[in-house]
Each structure stands twice: as C-alpha cells, then as structure tokens.
Write a protein that binds this DNA or RNA. Structure first.
Length: 816
RNA sequence: GCCCGGGUGGCGGAAUUGGUAGACGCUACGGACUUAAAAUCCGUUUUGCGAAAGCAAGUGCGAGUUCGAGUCUCGCCCCGGGCACCA
C-alpha cells in the first residue's frame, strides 16, 4: 500500500475493475428483487455543471447502497438531446444542432465515466435519434386515433422583426432578445394532448403516492386546480347569443356589478369595428407576453364596451368591459365580477369607479366594511332577496337548481389545468407526424412510414425553422388519398421525449415496439431523483404519459415513479446556476485537481439533498483532507501487521467504547442513507468515527481488532459516496473481495449497550446541570439524584418543587 | 399576483417524535514541525460579563400554546423555485 493518497491512479484502477467485470450491467432476473434507480436525464449542454454532479451523485449513492442491501439495481443514463440551446449554438457558431449535440454528448459521457457513476451503459438513450423518437411519433398517431390529440388555435410570443415564435425565456421586458422588437401575442393553430381527460386520475392518484414529498403533491394538486362550480348564461341586451361564465362562488351572484371579456372575445371584436378607441385598446392588449406571471402582475386595464348583460336573477343591467387580464384561452373568455368578494375584482372596481356591493357577511356575526377591501371568505348570503340567510352550500344548491330548471346553467367541474400544447415552431425537435391534405385535412403518418426523420445536415439562420425551406422534407403524399400534400413542419415540445424515456431504458433496443415485456420487469421506477424545478411540468406530463401507455396496453403501471427525491438547486450568488445567467462552476477543474471522490464527497457532505446549495469554493479542500486522513489511518493500521477478529467479551472499557461508536455509526449511516436520504449527516457520522479512531491509542491485539472493525465499517458505509478510494482501501484492509460486491455492514445491537447515561437537569426549563445515571434507573431515583445536585439546589432554593418531569435517557425538568 | 420551499455562529450546515441549540466541515486566529513555505499535527472559535465555576442573551420579526418551542399555531418581512415555449 502506498503511504500517500493518490486519487488519479486509484480512481482509474477502480473504474477499470468495474468496467472489466461489467458490475453495473443488469438483465431481467426474475429471482432477484429489482431496484430501478433513476435521475432526470441531462440536457447535453456542453459540460456537466454542479447541478448535474449533485443529482447524479445522490442517485449513485442510493443505487450503490441498495446494491449492498442485495437488490438487483438498474441505473441507466441517457440524453435529453433536443432543445433550444442547440439552435442558439447553431446561430452563434454556425454549427448544425445535431453535430453540436453529439459532440457535447461524447464529452459529457467521458465526464460521467470519470465521476465513477454506476451506470449500465449498454442502455444509453439519445432522444434525438430516430430510433428513439419514432416511438413517440407512433404514440402520437395512436393518440390521434383515440381522440387524445387535437388541433386548436393558441397564443404564442411573436417577434415581428425576426418573424419567429419566441420562448417566454427569450422575451426580455416585453421585447425579443435578439431583435429587441416589441413582442406580440399571436394566435396560431397548434397540436394539443388531452391531459385534462386524465385530470381526475392525476389528482386522485396523488393521495396514493406515499413516496413523494408533500410539497410536490400539493403543487400538482394546485396546478390541476379542480374546482366545482356553476356555469351559467347571462343574456346580453341586443344579442342573440348569451354570455357564458364559470363561477366557483355562485353564492355571490347578486354581487355581480360588471362583467369582463377578453380582447379576442367576439363581443369585443364586434364592438371594436365601430369604436376606434376599443380597437386601439384591443391592439394594446396584444402587445403583452403570453406568460401567466406577466398577466398577473401587469397593470389591470379595461374599457367599457357600452354593451349590457341582464342579471339572471335581479334583471338589472350589468356593464360589459373588455379587460387585459381576461384570456380567451381560459374557460369561456368571459368572467363575472364580484368586487365585494374578490380581490382582483375589487381593485379593478375601485380604480374605475364601479359599484361594490356586499352580499356575504361573516358567519360569526362580525361586521365588515366592504368599501375598505373585499371580504373573500365564505359566510352567509345577504342583500340577495330570497337567497338571504343561506350559507355557501345552500346557496350553490338553490342557484344550481333554479338555473338547471331554466336551462340557463349547470353544475360543473372546472380545472385550472389546460391541455398540453405540444407544437413548437422550431427545427431541433422530433417532427410531428402529420400530413396536411387539401381534401383529407390533417392525416397522421401511417406506422409503416415512421419515423419521420429530422434532417440533421441543415443550415440554421435563426429566422424561422429550416424545415419550412426544405421541400424534400415537407413535400409528401397524402396517406389517405395519395394526392400531393404537405408535411407538418412543427416539432414536439421536448417534454414529450422526457415523458416516457424512463420506460424505454428497460428495452432500449426494441425495434418492433415502443416497449416490450422487459418493461414489466423494471417499471415502475423505484427511486426517481431530480431538481425541484421539475415538480410540476415534467412530472405531471410523465404521469400523464404513463397512464396513456397503460391504457394502450404498453404498461401495467399506473404511476411511473414510486419514490421521488427532489434535490434543491445549486445556487451561485443566490441564483440558480445556469448557462443563461453565466454563473456556472465547471466541475472538471475540481475533478482534475482532487479526483472524483473529493468532488462526490464535497457535494454529499455540504447540504442535505432537498435544500438548495449555495456554491462556495471553500470546503472542497476539507473533503480532500478527509480522504487523506482516512488513507493515512488505514495505512498506519495495516503497516503494523494483521489484526485478529474482535472478541467482544474480552474488551476493556475504552475498546468497548470505540466498538460502540463503530456500531452507532453503522446504525446512524444506515438510517441516514436508507431512510432519511441525509447524506451530509451520514458523512459527518463517519468522520466522527475516524476522529475517534485517531484519538484511540492502543496497539494491543484487542485494540487493533476494534480498530480494524472500525476501519472496515467506515470503508463500507462510505463506499457508496466515495467508491474509488473505498475499492482500494478495502483491499488494503486485507479483503480479497471487491467492495462493490460487499454486503452492507451488520449492526451488532449488543455493542450499543451502555451501563450509565448522562442526562441533563433543567430547573423551570433552563439547563442547570448534567448527571450520570444508571441506564436502567427508574424515574424516582433519577429525580432524587437530580434534586441532590448542587447547582440544582442553588436554583430551587427554598421554593416548593411543584413537579418534576422525567424523560428517560434524556432529561429531568424541575418546576418550582 | 398566485402556488411551493427556505431563513440557525464569520460560512455550509446539525439538532430524526416538542426535550442539552451550534454535531461534522470550512474560514480565521494561536501554537508545534520546518532554514522557509506548503502539507501535517495540536488548540481556540455564537455574543456579553467573569480568573474560574458559572450567569445572561440568542435560531428572520411580532404575538401565542406548553413544565419546556429552532421544531407547533397566528400575523408579518426577506430570499429561492414554479407559473404552461429554458430544461
């Protein structure tokens, strides 16, 4: 054994062993207990960043730990290879997106190998390959047949100068990032997947996802936003078609003092034809971004249309406004406003001098002043004629019955969740397999003509998609009638690829089907790990796809991910590390300087996985120092010769104390890694044990035996975190086997036993003393011993002891 | 604006079920070794008072529940994530 720690050499040895022995390549063995451990696959942006290293290390620690528990572990890796950065690189550097992407993948694959992750590389996936995306094109055509996809108009950010659709990210302060032109909202036809058909199941199944964090489930529940209410029609004076609105608060119906419609609403459009000021306002409404956060925070503006609706109960005339905060794509494009009991309506009414009336009063009888602000809680109906005195449920019931009888409305369930728009007007994505025929309309590409291959050798200018300039791509025959037709040039949202890749890892080479019987062995994923930023969109789309695949008979699983761990972001200067912000730290430098184990150890010991991790260059040194100390301790131990096996009965007090520490450490690390996923405290516990070994000065045979046991334990419990050095140290400690194939160390309960324990004594809740009591002492003797303590006596003085609270093994609290 | 997190020493964090606040690590400072530096080792490191024993204060702010609150409840402030075309 070398006297000093030389990571480069050690790490190469370990990697070569794992590769040569193919230890991470797994098949479908029905006799073994499978464990599918997965991280959200990376986008090949160029080089790994710290966020990747963090999530990949977390997952690798879990995978290696489960392996040591005897599980048959699958940990695959692949590339989420379509996306905007490849197009941006193409614009900036003139490199075709495909070439850029493949180059990045090659480089990043090397980095992953260098970090020692235990992947089954035979299953590597790359989503920009036709053999991958052909199956999502296939699924899309099946969904088309089932009516799960459809085409409708929806809003995009339009850059009028670059003549391009912009992502929300590419709009900065309402202007195009490259052209600096004011961005407009524009409606174009796009393809949608009917995720709302699964809204109830997606919502209800959350209750059974016990392995998911509550915060993520809550976010998804709120996102789906199921609400029960009433859809009702208001007649409009001088119009044949009534105005339909949805409300969750029919109890406030008599408080409606105005209504508002979207700029794109037919009533607004019609009015604009005669009134130039309305037309100008509608134009102004278009000059905003499509993002919801923008709509919610911008100044609420509106204009009266001069049209009136008739209140269905009071018969009063209600003014109709056009407003910038009402969206045509949301519900019916019209809302009823109850300024007395809704915050946004109140603000708008207050600004425009619209009447505010109170129709709800608090149930507890307290009084409120509606002129000072809205009262939004449930209460008792007032000022509403025959509805007065009813509570929310009674009012809903009464109004629903009345309108259902009149044929004017109905009870209905509304969702905040909208159908998933999958069309992107971009080049670097999977082509949407549709052919447009003048006679047959939109026709899905037949199975035998799939995949629709994206041409990779293109010139990319950034103005529109190159596919639109390529007749060899878009010219096609109609699959139905054979007439000359035109291929769809839009591509899929990249969330489509990431919505099913987890299943494809089970059978990456399947040429005959999207998924085969191997999917049944590996799915669902037992442990899924990824960034909290994916809590809603990616995870909801993946759950949706899983249910679609199940309903098509491709899978038996209802849910794709049994356990979910959402890791916090790696921040720098208080913000998410991202290329866009230019605040990334390159892990490569650190790996080259200190080795992979140091980087892995640093990431795992610095913060618990869920918490965001503020990057700092300090601390990597500390991890490296620990590895050097560990190396040195093993070296010094083995240099003194062989150690005999521990004989627990013949140990003295100090030897027994070190052995207790060893087994306490095994217990703590098992719990921290296996149950709590708190790798930072697991590492801290192992460090404490090493510190105890260093303080332990005993070269007797029995002394060396407990040191050997302690070092064996440290090496095994840390081997998931720092696998390379542990591979080497395990051999150095005299073991023939490879650490990667070892079982997890076994806890000896008897080693934990203690004769006496220290407990604290409080007087009135304040710490006053510590006493040593027998481990099996009863409450009475503990409180007697506590009251006899000098400092306790000082604080009790001549006051009467009112009671003493004894928490066995922890504390005594004397109350005076 | 709405939804979800977070806020504890100089710093990252620990405190698992309401029971010793600050484990472990970093930084800084002092010391040993060295011609010197690096590396390594030893010590100190929440603040205030004190020679020490010890005492007082202290977990973003303000209230509350409790024998006891970093942990639970209510009201605020600040920071981060998401908001449907970044991935």
């Amino acid at each position: 054994m070398d006297a000093s720690y030389k990571p480069e050499h050690i790490e190469q040895n370990a990697r070569e062993y794992w590769e040569k022995e193919r230890v991470f390549e797994v098949d479908e063995n029905p006799d073994k207990d499978k464990f599918y451990c997965l991280t959200m696959f990376p986008y090949p942006s160029g080089q790994l960043h710290m966020g990747h290293v963090r999530v990949l290390t977390i997952s690798d620690v879990i995978a290696r730990y489960q392996r040591m528990q005897g599980k048959h572990v699958l940990q695959p890796m692949g590339w989420d290879a379509f996306g905007m950065p490849a197009e941006n690189a193409a614009i900036e550097r003139g490199v075709p997106p495909a070439k850029w992407t493949y180059k990045n993948i090659d480089y990043m694959r090397g980095q992953l190998k260098r970090l020692g992750y235990g992947y089954d590389w035979t299953r590597e996936l790359t989503t920009c390959r036709p053999e991958y995306y052909r199956w999502e094109q296939w699924l899309f055509t099946k969904m088309f047949e089932k009516g799960l996809v459809y085409r409708k108009n929806s809003v995009v950010n339009w850059d009028p100068v670059d003549q391009t659709v912009l992502a929300n990210e590419q709009v900065i302060d309402g202007r195009g990032w490259r052209s600096n032109a004011l961005v407009e909202r524009r409606e174009i036809p796009q393809w949608f997947m009917r995720i709302t058909a699964y809204a109830d199941e997606l919502l209800d199944e959350l209750d059974h996802l016990d392995g998911w964090p509550e915060s993520v489930k809550t976010m998804q529940r709120n996102w789906i936003g199921r609400s029960e209410g009433i859809e009702l029609a208001f007649d409009v004076k001088g119009e044949d078609v009534p105005l339909t609105v949805f409300t969750t608060r029919p109890d406030t119906l008599l408080g409606v003092t105005y209504m508002a419609v979207a700029a794109e609403h037919p009533l607004a459009q019609k009015t604009a034809a005669d009134k130039p000021d309305i037309a100008a306002f509608i134009e102004e409404c278009k000059r905003t971004q499509a993002a919801e956060a923008m709509l919610e925070t911008m100044e609420k503006k509106g204009m009266p249309l001069g049209i009136f609706a008739i209140h269905p109960i009071s018969g009063e005339e209600i003014p109709l406004w056009v407003a910038n905060f009402v969206l045509m794509s949301y519900g019916t494009g019209a809302v009823m406003a109850v300024p007395g009991h809704d915050a946004r309506d109140w603000e708008f009414a207050d600004k425009h001098g619209l009447p505010i009336t109170q129709v709800i009063t608090p149930a507890d009888g307290s009084s409120i002043d509606i002129t000072k602000g809205p009262y939004v809680d449930y209460g008792i109906v007032v000022n509403s004629g025959e509805l007065d005195g009813l509570d929310y449920d009674q009012a809903l019931d009464a109004i629903a019955k009345r309108f259902e009888n009149e044929g004017r409305g109905r009870r209905t369930v509304n969702y905040r969740l909208r159908d998933w728009g999958v069309s992107r007007q971009r080049y670097w994505g999977a082509p949407i397999p549709i052919i447009y025929c003048d006679d047959c309309d939109a026709v899905p590409v037949p199975e035998d003509q799939l995949p629709v291959v994206l041409p990779e050798d293109v010139e990319f200018t950034g103005v529109g998609s190159p596919l639109k300039q390529m007749p060899e791509f878009y010219e096609a025959d109609c699959p139905k009638c054979g007439k000359a037709a035109r291929r769809e040039t839009d591509t899929f949202d990249t969330f489509v690829e990431s919505s099913w890749y987890f299943s494809r890892y089970a059978c990456p080479d399947s040429n005959d089907a999207m998924l085969d019987e191997r999917e049944r062995y590996w799915m669902p994923v037992d442990q899924y790990t990824g960034g909290i930023e994916h809590a809603i969109l990616h995870l909801l789309y993946a759950r949706f796809f899983q249910k679609v695949m199940r309903d098509f008979g491709l899978s038996a699983a209802d849910e794709p991910f049994t356990n979910l761990l959402t890791q916090g972001m790696v921040l720098k200067d208080g913000a998410k590390m991202s290329k866009a912000k230019g605040n990334t730290v390159d892990p490569q430098e650190l790996i080259e300087k200190y080795g992979a184990d140091t980087v892995r150890l640093f990431m795992m010991s610095t913060a618990p996985p869920e918490m965001s991790l503020e990057w700092s260059d300090d601390g990597v040194q500390g991890a490296f120092r620990f590895l050097k100390r560990l190396w040195k301790s093993v070296y010094e131990h083995v240099s003194a010769g062989d150690a005999v096996a521990v004989e627990p009965k013949s140990l003295d007090d100090k030897q027994r104390a070190l052995r207790r520490k060893t087994h306490q450490t095994i217990q703590k690390v098992s719990d921290d890694i296996g149950r709590r996923y708190k790798f930072n405290t697991a590492v801290a516990a192992a460090m404490e044990l090493l510190n105890a070994i260093k303080r332990f000065d005993d070269s007797s045979g029995a002394g060396r035996s407990v040191v050997q046991e302690a070092l064996d334990a440290i090496v095994l419990v840390l081997s998931p975190v720092i696998p390379h050095v542990c591979h080497e140290l395990w051999h150095a400690l005299g073991h023939e086997s490879a650490a990667v194939n070892e079982g997890w160390p076994v806890l000896d309960e008897s080693a934990l036993a203690q004769d006496a324990v220290e407990i604290i004594v409080q007087v009135n809740g304040k710490l006053r003393s510590r006493i040593l009591v027998a481990a099996d002492a009863d409450s009475d003797s503990i409180s007697a011993q506590a009251l006899a303590d000098e400092n306790v006596k000082r604080f009790v003085g001549d006051k009467t002891v009112r009671k003493t609270i004894v928490v066995p093994g922890r504390l005594v609290n004397v109350v005076v």
